[in-house]
Design a protein around this nucleic acid. Sequence first.
DNA 1: GATGGTCATGGAACCGGTTCCATGACCGCC
DNA 2: GGCGGTCATGGAACCGGTTCCATGACCATC
Lengths: 339, 339
Amino acid sequence: MRKPTIRDVAKEAGVGVGTVSRVLNNSQQVSTETREKVLAAIAKLGFRPNRIAQRLSRGTRVQNIGVILPFITSPSFVERLRGVQMALSEDDNEYELILYNVSSPERYQAQLATIAQQRLVEGLLVISLDVSQEHREMLTQAGIAFVGVRGLGSNSWPCVGPDNVAGGKLATEYLLSLGHTRIAYVGDDFPDEYSFPTSQDRFTGYASALEEHGIEVNLDYVRLGRYGRDEAKRLTAELLELADPPTAIFAMSDVQALGCISAIREAGLRVPEDVSVIGFDDIEISYYVGLTTVRQHLVESGRLGMRYLLQLLREDGGDVPRLPPLEVIERQTTAPPPG
Amino acid sequence: MRKPTIRDVAKEAGVGVGTVSRVLNNSQQVSTETREKVLAAIAKLGFRPNRIAQRLSRGTRVQNIGVILPFITSPSFVERLRGVQMALSEDDNEYELILYNVSSPERYQAQLATIAQQRLVEGLLVISLDVSQEHREMLTQAGIAFVGVRGLGSNSWPCVGPDNVAGGKLATEYLLSLGHTRIAYVGDDFPDEYSFPTSQDRFTGYASALEEHGIEVNLDYVRLGRYGRDEAKRLTAELLELADPPTAIFAMSDVQALGCISAIREAGLRVPEDVSVIGFDDIEISYYVGLTTVRQHLVESGRLGMRYLLQLLREDGGDVPRLPPLEVIERQTTAPPPG
DNA sequence: GATGGTCATGGAACCGGTTCCATGACCGCC
DNA sequence: GGCGGTCATGGAACCGGTTCCATGACCATC
């Protein structure tokens, strides 16, 4: 039993399709009596106009751009999204933004396939997610341009984002420069749920900075877990119970850094006098709470990513834009080690 | 000069429309030679397939739901949006989410008109914005259901949100119950840029609580300005310079409350020992910084709003859902007045 | 009673793709 | 040489609306 069309309604009401259309569009040119008949038929059949057909015949030309991102749960995604919005509103506004949110890793692949198949969007911005070779091909086949906003890696596709290895190194070097030697790393499990190696990359940078200073990586100081404040807090509590606890912690994200700080305070220690903490991201909260962190220009990455995508859609091509360099933002959670 | 269609391409390439379509869809059933000819014609004419027509003929049935909200700048919008996403992903997922963001108040009205005219969406969720009588009629005419997620008021249309007057009263009563009598109010100008009376309503609650306790509203204690942390900080600095400064501040939003706290600390005073601060919203940051506030269930409001909209689209009707009651969340920024 | 205007109405043509069916070329095999 | 099969191809029909044009009813006017 297929959905009723305007012709079914016309037949049911005993009128022509034109009349039904006029009723639907509130034309004045319909007698009250006929209108009633048509409305009755519509109600009876449960008819709902097909928007696609409406738009085709009206000639409305709307272009869509898709943005896909993990469930809006982490502040860093939100900031990137904010940048995306900026780029879009700076533009001519000829595109509508369709937001796809990935609520579970399992569904992500299927969503990409659906996006390619539906061809609803002209372009897709992929925020903080990876796209497999297979899905890249699907998108290309469907004629959908795509750009990533995420950490750089061995990218075989255009991405705007930070070099996480360099960032991890930068954070660790900053702690080393303050005189710390017992430096812990708190991060996500590798590889994380979306099989995206952020934590791993930042750890690599951490390890290489230590190594360059002749410090061996102490696996007791490396604590990995699920992303989130509470898990980071738990991991930090474990660190503080070590016989030889770290004097500084590099948390792979600001959210996790906040968990670290909270654990340190609950253990009766002070930040930064007893333990220093540096985060990564520079989300808005960090400014409020005075967290020292590595600024990765989140808003700007969303903005540049979208801008580049728009450029691709206009077939201007051009180089992938680059973010300003990563920088350590010194606030109040880092200091030289005690003693 | 209208855009080239598939028929133009077919003519140009000297083939049938079916063949062009096959090339577009990477069918195996086309000889290399023909494919080349078609591709050349496509390139020459600058042909781009019309997605609308594709979808109509393919029979793809995608429904869209629109969400319109002020530029993603305030955390409270983001939390509401998060709730929206939750509702949508709990559902059958038959809808795509189109995000409209209002970057300037002037453009807002025009955007609503465009939305009504385009008829791209089946329903519209309006977050933290007002919809005039005129625009409500336009939406209704276009057959677009809409629901608001914003403070209740003299609503002639369905909205899910807090009672701001009651909330303002609740916050003020809490401060009164601690023993404060010199209580200031820091909020947005009325009416604000989007002509939405949040600040006014919360102030009304504030005034009525004071009145019920026999305290006259002291206009020196009422400071209004642009929304934002820095402005609130400035206003608070002014308050602290009064001959008889307040011992407690009710900030109309958590973001503003953070500005208040920062001003108090910069003035060499302690929170809450010298001055208490209560906010409004209970955004995520408030948890991290230990801000006492009025919880208005932001995430839940987005969720319920979207859920109700989906229900309307299924024509189940039903009552507008109600949020759990507002509640004061006591944290570390409020205490009895000094002395 | 003929003329002309207004108005509600039916229905064909159209929007721009996809898909299915008929056609004819070409090949291999009996 | 006739037959059946495969394969590339053209083009009509279709998706489900909107719009325009022709039609005929009805009324007022001369």
